[in-house]
Simulated scan of single mutants.
Amino acid sequence: MSATTAADRRYSIKGAVFEAERLAPGLHVTSTPIGHLADISLRAVNALAAADEILCEDTRVTGKLLQRYGISTRLVPYHDHNAAKLRPRILAELAAGKALVLVSDAGTPLISDPGFKLARAVIEAGLPLHVIPGASAPLAALALSGLPSDRFMFCGFLPEKQGERRRLLGALKTVPATLIFFESPRRIEAALADITETLGPRPVAVTRELTKLYEEVVRGPAPEVAAQLAERETIKGEITLVVSPPLDEAPAPETIDEALLEASGHMPAGKAAAEVAHRFGLAKKELYDRLLVLKDKKAQ
């Protein structure tokens, strides 16, 4: 592996060129944007420019990021198919005092990618390991979901086969935390159907194309969200699915009525019903009808 020369260690932001500050020896696990290329820290840009080499999943993907910031650091592919073969060479480079950066195609490395094996090997070898935090699709989806964020569990990709998917969901049924999954747009409707069957009509948020031009969040009880998506001809883009923790006992009717009237005081009836439905895991249409009744009574 040939290292980047000192003359190449520069980066540019909106035409302004900067000399990269020296990077400490070791492996730097570095977060990169999940969509919008501006979602990267100055520290991460500096690390990409200052590194001796960058280990990445796909050189084409990371190459676009480097081009955006005028960085010419050498890229070395590191993925599932070559990781075992490359790890000894990478450890030798680190032992020799090199500064290497590890990135994934998007977001924070080690989250659903082979990087964790390299990080573990670096730790076991007693070599320096650093982290440069930043963008993360699970955290972005959780923030957008409107679901409880005080306790959550990232579960990776749901299994492709229904039987395996339902078994996993069954094992997670009593976990007292918000659940976060990655899912394919081809299987999202099936996943929501299995969530409804296994976990009940919990509130969910289907987040799609996070930070990109067509970013979207569909919120509501799992069966309602599934029905909305079923009306579309196609569903595209990367999806992060957020599922509410187990629901408490059904709220008292008075509590629901109070929530409906409070919400309708500052938003249209449809939105008020949707917000309360999402909060309590109830059907939006039933709450909308109930709100109309409450408004009629109030007007009398």
Results as ranks from 00 to 15, higher is better:
Val103Ala: 01
Pro128Ile: 03
Ile13Phe: 11
Ile123Asn: 02
Gln67Asp: 09
Leu102Lys: 02
Leu94Thr: 01
Leu213Gln: 15
Gly200Ala: 13
Pro246Trp: 12
Leu291Asn: 02
Tyr214Lys: 09
Gly70Pro: 08
Ile195Lys: 06
Leu42Gly: 11
Thr30Arg: 06
Lys173Arg: 15
Asp58Trp: 01
Leu192His: 08
Glu254Pro: 06
Glu233Gly: 14
Cys155Ser: 07
Ile188Glu: 05
Glu215Ala: 03
Val243Trp: 04
Glu275Trp: 13
Tyr11Leu: 13
Ala143Pro: 00
Leu192Asn: 05
Gly156Ser: 05
His28Phe: 09
Ala252Trp: 12
Tyr78Lys: 00
Arg151Trp: 03
Val218Ser: 08
Glu231His: 08
Gly63Thr: 04
Gly156Val: 06
Cys56Asp: 00
Ala283Thr: 08
Thr4Trp: 07
Phe116Asp: 04
Pro251Val: 10
Arg186Gln: 14
Asp289Tyr: 01
Pro128Tyr: 07
Val293Met: 07
Pro128Asp: 07
Leu172Asn: 06
Ile13His: 10
Leu75Glu: 01
Arg187Cys: 08
Arg219Phe: 07
Ala190Asn: 14
Asp52Ala: 09
Ala171Ile: 00
Pro109Lys: 02
Ala24Phe: 01
Thr207Pro: 13
Leu102Tyr: 02
Ser12Arg: 15
Arg9Asn: 11
Ser2Arg: 15
Lys297Pro: 00
Val103Trp: 00
Leu144Ser: 04
Arg165Val: 03
Ala95Leu: 00
Ile195Val: 15
Ala121Asn: 05
Thr196Lys: 12
Leu229Val: 10
Glu275His: 14
Tyr69Ser: 00
Leu282Pro: 01
Lys284Asn: 11
Glu160His: 13
Ala177Asn: 06
Arg10Thr: 15
Leu199Cys: 12
Arg43Thr: 10
Leu144Asn: 04
Ser2Leu: 14
Val175Phe: 09
Pro253Phe: 14
Leu75Lys: 02
Gly170Pro: 02
Ala83His: 03
